[in-house]
């Protein structure tokens, strides 16, 4: 992003940024802190050990009320903290990108869901002598989800209208190619080591949680672990891709051979060089969809943007994307 776009529309930019921060960080943290304080104020009236986890047979997990306080504060601050970083790169008009708006209201929704749901599950245990009789907190979670939706809807209207204009193209120096010359470009793109570690960490947590639940006597092990391994295998096939462009069109193929996206040259309606901000444009990394645009997003920066004749768009950030776009433009001009 160059200076002229960074400094365009400073007033709109400031309004957008402050409202995004209000919706995604300030309000969620306020809800979480309020919920935590209310739970803490109830501690004298609660049993020393309260129900914190429910199964089909009622309470099956016990703990200190402080665990729930930590859950509310920890989850909300983590989510809001990540959100705060995704608002750095606004649309050129100074308005939020659609994904940024969606993420901001999701942060608010999550905080109300957890704040109301968890505080509610504690409220019904006040005055109990034995936490094993604690009532199911499902109604409170549903109420939290509903109130969260109302808050998210209100926040949606508070935020400036999302900017859906596609990113502007970067000029590409054309390749000079003789009439009988054949051109072909190929490159690979891999997930950063940090992303890979994150994927493994999430699955380690999931599998650890499932094993712990199984040891605790829940009969969910196979049901939980099997899908986890399937998803893990899928995630790992998608961490390294080969991109090839030439007379054949565009191929984006996982190095495992599957999944693969192949667009024949006859279906390529337009090809441009753009710049991608993973969180702002696609809400994160991996195989992404956002408003008719598919992204194979493993890194930020210059990207090939292919518009198909059916109007669908494929975006792939890759090193040397400029050459790839130039090659495809030559192939199309034939």
């Amino acid at each position: 992003m160059n200076d002229s776009t960074q400094h365009a529309n400073p007033e709109q930019r400031a309004v957008t940024r402050s409202r995004l921060l209000l919706v995604a960080v300030v309000l969620p943290l306020a809800v979480a802190v309020a919920s935590a304080l209310i739970i803490i104020s109830w501690i004298p009236t609660l049993p020393a050990v309260i129900g914190i986890h429910w199964g089909s047979e009622g309470v099956n997990g016990f703990g200190s009320p402080w665990e729930l306080v930590a859950t509310v504060l920890g989850t909300v601050s983590l989510f809001s903290g990540v959100m705060a970083f995704s608002f750095a790169d606004l649309a050129e008009s100074g308005r939020p990108r659609p994904t940024q708006k969606a993420l901001a209201v999701t942060a608010l929704w999550l905080s109300v869901l957890l704040g109301v749901g968890i505080a509610g599950s504690v409220a019904t245990q006040r005055g109990l002598s034995d936490a094993s009789t604690a009532p199911d907190p499902l109604p409170w979670l549903l109420l939290g989800a509903l109130l969260g939706l109302v808050a998210a809807a209100a926040a949606w209207f508070l935020l400036p209208r999302a900017d859906r204009t596609p990113p502007s193209a970067i000029d590409v120096e054309p390749l000079e190619v003789g009439p009988s010359e054949r051109v072909f470009w190929t490159g690979t793109v891999s997930a950063a080591r940090g992303v890979l570690l994150l994927i493994l960490a999430v699955f380690a947590l999931g599998i650890g949680g499932a094993v712990a639940a199984a040891l605790g006597g829940e009969e969910v092990l196979v049901l939980v672990l099997l899908p986890l391994f399937v998803v893990l295998a899928l995630a790992l096939t998608a961490v390294r891709w080969r991109v090839s462009v030439g007379q054949h069109g565009v191929n984006v193929v996982s190095v495992a051979g599957w999944p693969a996206i192949r667009i024949p040259l006859s279906e390529v309606a337009d090809v441009r060089l753009i710049t991608v901000n993973p969180v702002g444009d696609f809400g994160g990394w991996g195989w992404r969809w956002s408003g008719g645009r598919t992204g194979i997003i493993l890194q930020a920066g210059p990207a090939i943007e292919v518009t198909r004749s059916n109007g669908k768009v494929l975006v792939v950030p890759v090193d040397d994307a400029e050459t790839a776009v130039a090659v495809l433009q030559v192939a199309r001009a034939r």
Partner: peptide, 9 residues
């Protein structure tokens, strides 16, 4: 990798 070949050369 950028490859350019021309069979007429």
């Amino acid at each position: 990798m950028l490859i350019r070949i021309d069979p007429t050369l």
